[in-house]
Design a protein around this nucleic acid. Structure first.
Lengths: 230, 230
DNA sequence: GTCTCTGTGTCACACTCCTGTCATAATTTC
DNA sequence: GAAATTATGACAGGAGTGTGACACAGAGAC
């Protein structure tokens, strides 16, 4: 359970930002503020907020662009986003949700409704690792039973290889550096050599080799590794 | 990547300070030292360290106070802090993190763990720079997946050619001298022969030749190279 | 308690592929 | 034509990665 969720408010109009911050703090959250894209990134980097309230209209970079960029980065793609917009246009709503927002609220809004939505989104995001079964490229992984099958045949994996494969199967196509994999699979508070990743990649490949699926895990020289079905 | 991060060691016991400085320098960082609060502020002003190792117990002003002051100042609130403490008390840990420390390590500590924590904290503080996919003139380049397609067909590029193409695709229709390309693609701190650019241009053209897109990279005699779709 | 077994992290070595440089050929400019 | 500039091919060295071995810690079994 998050003790005190940090909520980043990205809003250029001071009056609205102030109102939002007041409500957020009133509800027992920590309010962070940013008035444009650069300062938003700064806040995200420094404080790792648990949720972002993102204004649709911003000077320079629009909220939609920021949302897309957030979703594109491994370190920020799990942060829930609530979009704020002036109009109640359905098209905007679709665009907003497509860009990766988790929810959507139109100005003017009641503080009560805002807080309800924030709480709902946070509640949904408490299970950070969704324990759902994953199936991709001939591989099936079940977190609940802790089982993996490759082309129907069960394969044995150690705990670390299991988590590594789970991460890859839920984050395909993108390249992850050894450092990012350490942060995501081992955790940020664990200290192991970067090259250890190589060894576990090799162990995972060895386990997949019998099914001929070891080529799903690709080496990107100079960058890291990638899980790709193509 | 920070070329050589400067690390300020705030520690009053000379023996421990010496040990820390040795380890920090051994790991390739620059070590700055201060034995009390005033000299720490002096060093911060003069050298703008990238990270601060802060002893919990100091004469006069304690580490916690310094941390809070650092966090209160806009110029220093972004500098990550690692607290050093003698006791492994949980309450101290909470206090330390509340006062604004990014991490916490108890004495005695292994040099290995210390360096790992330093690297982890620095890693988390590198600016998040969202990179977007680029598509131009039949070429598509995706930084996140580290893939390039030319007219739909995937092509293989080495790391340097990839960066070179990425630079060109984001800076089209303009001539860049070899020196400028070295600065932008190789980095300013690297010393390589200007003629090396020619070779990489050639390698990039060779990779694009199969798709007939090698003419996107044009030679401007006497000036340099240009990426142009016209 | 000892013993075994499994999983993990680290290291040393092998190997691949990239990279910078040079010599030489080709091209452009005057 | 000569001079200047660029293209190309070849190559040695090195950075980055694959792989096997090993030590160690922890969980059970007995």
């Amino acid at each position: 359970m998050i003790v005190q969720a940090k909520i980043l408010i990205v809003e250029d109009e001071p009056a609205i930002a102030e109102l939002l911050a007041f409500n957020v703090m009133q509800a027992g959250f920590i309010a962070l503020r940013a008035e444009d894209a650069p300062s938003a990134w700064q806040q995200i980097r420094d404080h790792a907020p648990d949720l972002i309230l993102l204004d649709w209209m911003l000077p320079e970079t629009s909220g939609v662009v920021i949302a897309k960029q957030l979703r594109a980065d491994a370190r920020t793609c799990d942060i829930p986003i609530i979009m704020l917009t002036a109009r109640g246009d359905e098209r905007d709503k679709v665009l907003g949700l497509e860009s990766g927002a988790d929810d959507y609220i139109t100005k003017p809004f009641s503080p009560r409704e805002l807080m309800a939505r924030i709480r709902a989104v946070l509640r949904r995001h408490i299970p950070i690792m969704p324990e759902e079964n994953v199936s991709i490229g001939g591989l099936e992984l079940s977190p609940t039973t802790h089982r993996v099958t490759a082309k129907g045949h069960g394969i044995e994996l150690g705990p670390t290889e299991f988590r590594l494969l789970q991460f890859f199967m839920t984050h395909t196509e993108r390249v992850y550096s050894r450092t990012q994999l350490l942060d995501q699979v081992w955790g940020t508070q664990v200290f192991v050599e970067e090259r250890t990743v190589d060894v576990h990649i090799r162990r995972l490949r060895a386990a997949l080799e019998a099914s001929g699926l070891d080529n799903l895990i690709q080496t990107v020289r100079g960058s890291g590794y990638r899980f790709s079905v193509t």
